[in-house]
Amino acid sequence: MEIFEVAYAPPRSSDEFVLCIGKFDGVHIGHQAVIRTARQYAGSGQLGVISLWPHPRWTLQRDPDYQRALTPVREKRRLLEQYGVDRLYEIDFTEEYAKTSPEIFVLEHLAGLNLKRVVVGDGFNFGKGVHSTTDELVELCSRIGVPVTVVPPVTVNERVVSSSDIRCHVKAGRVEAAQALLGRPYTLTGEVVHGAGLGRKLGFPTANLGGIDDFVLPAPGVYEGIAEIHSVKATDNTYWYTLISAGYRPTVNGTSYEVEAYLIDFDGDLYGKDLSVSFLRRARDEIQFTTTEALIEQMRVDEQLARDRFGLHKS
């Protein structure tokens, strides 16, 4: 996938392609419907996406709920490429860029691209003040000879799938509900860093995940999931059923939010490796135990329950 980091206007293009436009935070099942529709129009040709980062509600309002993302830049790139996008235009959404009018966006920025068609989701807003509608997009694009397709929203239980709802689910620990709307498990990707080594001392060596400050973080608790250990070649990646501890570790007087993964039956050195942990099920709340022994006993129970659910048996 070709990536363009855009400060203002995308570079002009002579190659014809179909373009999707949106924030695409989460790349959820609604976003995937837009991408699939665009791919149908593109056929064997090129498919492009214009996306924004940071989220406009962080840039313009400093809304703390939007400082983090369901899919920060590196994760969004990986997913969009996986879903068949050939070129990605990443708009650096600054306060200055937010002043761009709908007319400039379409008649100058999009006009510089050789577009076969534009595809957006229903409810798409664009341009200064984000008051412009899909109807205006259709009218403006008609001036540059580009047809627009508006994809109907995807609903679950008659509620439109939205990144906002998924954020709420993740932050509340409802990772099963988040998975239903994302079309895949909610996943954090980071680098394994050195921690205090307490897990190893307790008999449960864990991988401490660093570099996840840009992600929306799940509610404190213990989760069952799967971990992907990244290699230089993606075909060499390996996967392990995993217990994930997310939270503040109150039993050992922890003060900062940490994500630690116990890869069941794994034996090896993970330090410095990239690791993705996917949250499949919330097993329990984070608990403050009165003794270390009580914590160890609960960890044994957690592991056995996970083994039973995953069909794993100790050798």
Rank of each mutant, 00 (worst) to 15 (best):
M1F: 09
F4N: 05
F4D: 04
V6W: 01
A7G: 15
V18F: 00
I21F: 05
G22C: 12
K23G: 08
G26I: 04
G26A: 12
V27N: 04
H28D: 10
G30C: 09
G30L: 14
G30D: 11
Q32C: 10
A38Q: 06
A38S: 10
R39K: 12
Y41W: 11
G43I: 01
S44Y: 06
S44V: 11
L47M: 00
L47W: 00
I50P: 02
I50T: 01
L52R: 00
L52D: 01
W53T: 12
P54A: 00
H55P: 01
P56S: 02
R57K: 07
R57L: 05
D65W: 08
D65H: 04
Y66R: 07
R68T: 14
L70T: 04
E75H: 13
E81H: 13
V85N: 06
L88I: 15
Y89R: 07
E90N: 12
I91R: 05
E95M: 02
Y97K: 06
K99I: 01
K99W: 01
L110K: 06
L113Q: 13
L113C: 12
R117T: 02
V120I: 14
D122Y: 15
D122V: 15
G123P: 11
F126S: 07
G127L: 09
H131K: 14
L140S: 01
P147F: 00
P147S: 09
T149I: 04
V151T: 04
V151N: 03
P152C: 05
R159D: 03
V161Y: 02
S164P: 09
H169V: 05
V170Y: 03
A172T: 13
A172G: 11
R174F: 06
A177K: 11
A180L: 12
L181W: 08
L182A: 07
L182Y: 07
G183L: 06
R184N: 08
P185S: 12
T187D: 04
T187A: 14
G199T: 07
G199V: 07
G199N: 08
K201P: 03
L202P: 11
F204M: 03
P205F: 08
N208L: 12
G210R: 10
I212R: 10
F215S: 10
A227D: 03
A227S: 13
E228L: 06
E228V: 08
I229K: 02
H230D: 10
D236G: 01
Y241S: 08
S245V: 08
Y248D: 04
R249H: 05
R249D: 13
V252K: 06
N253K: 12
T255A: 07
Y257G: 10
Y257T: 04
V259C: 05
E260K: 14
L263R: 08
D265V: 05
D265T: 10
F266P: 02
D269G: 09
Y271T: 13
Y271C: 10
L275H: 03
S276L: 09
S276K: 06
V277P: 10
F279T: 03
A283S: 14
R284D: 03
Q288D: 04
T291P: 08
T292F: 13
E293P: 08
L295P: 14
L295G: 11
M299N: 10
R300K: 15
D302Q: 09
A306Y: 03
R307P: 09
D308M: 13
D308A: 15
R309S: 15
F310C: 05
F310W: 13
L312C: 08
H313W: 12
H313A: 14
K314P: 03
K314Y: 12
